[in-house]
């Protein structure tokens, strides 16, 4: 039964991914991306990764879609299709895909207890987190306490992203006569 849900979600994921590539209406593409994120969130929930599922649903399907639509309001609605075909790109994609598929054969068995990922610090976290911190959500304890400096870095990254978007889009940015001529010269 669980496999059935997994397979259904994965099949939908592939269908939606293909549709995203095919549509030229960017509004549809943004909506399909939201569905893609929601399906991913469902898959994460199936893997019992509640935190990741919540993040994917809130960020990928929610804010990501809103920002894509907001960006779409600044540009054209329809994608300009690339003329002709590009056999070199197709060959590169196929070779890379086959290479990755071949490499995946060397991956350890999914979910096995002696995988490298389960033998390093994970046992310590699983056994000691509650004794160390008294926090029952393992993920929150790891993110905020054991890996606190990483999370500080993430917060700084988000602030930086905010500053960059402000610098790019704020009134005045790229609006001056000088900047405008520079850009059109670049385009030429």
């Amino acid at each position: 039964m669980i496999y059935l849900i997994d397979i259904t979600l994965l099949v939908f994921l592939i269908v939606v991914a293909y549709a995203v590539v095919r549509v030229t209406d960017l509004f549809e593409a943004a909506m399909l991306f939201a569905i893609y994120s929601l399906l991913s969130a469902g898959l994460f929930a199936m893997l019992d990764a509640g935190d990741v599922a919540l993040t994917e649903a809130a960020v990928g399907a929610g804010i990501g879609t809103i920002l894509m639509l907001a960006a779409l309001a600044l540009t054209h609605r329809y994608e300009r299709p690339a003329p002709g075909r590009n056999p070199t790109a197709l060959a590169i994609v196929i070779v890379t895909g086959l290479g990755l598929g071949y490499a995946s054969l060397d991956l350890p068995e999914f979910g096995a207890a002696d995988n490298p990922v389960h033998t390093h610090v994970a046992p310590y976290y699983i056994q000691q987190t509650y004794d160390d911190t008294g926090v029952s959500n393992l993920v929150a304890a790891i993110l905020a306490s054991y890996r606190s400096i990483d999370t500080l870095g993430e917060a700084v990254v988000i602030l930086t992203a905010g500053i960059i978007v402000f610098a790019l889009l704020a009134p005045g940015a790229g609006r001056g006569k000088r900047t405008s001529t520079t850009r059109s010269e670049e385009a030429e």
């Binding site: 935190d51 919540l54 804010i63 029952s136 304890a141 993430e154």
Partner: peptide, 21 residues
Amino acid sequence: HGEYSPGGGFQAGVLFGAAWI
């Protein structure tokens, strides 16, 4: 409630921002 259930500052911030949007 992020200590006890899935969630935390990041997701909460996004939800709050989404409500304002």
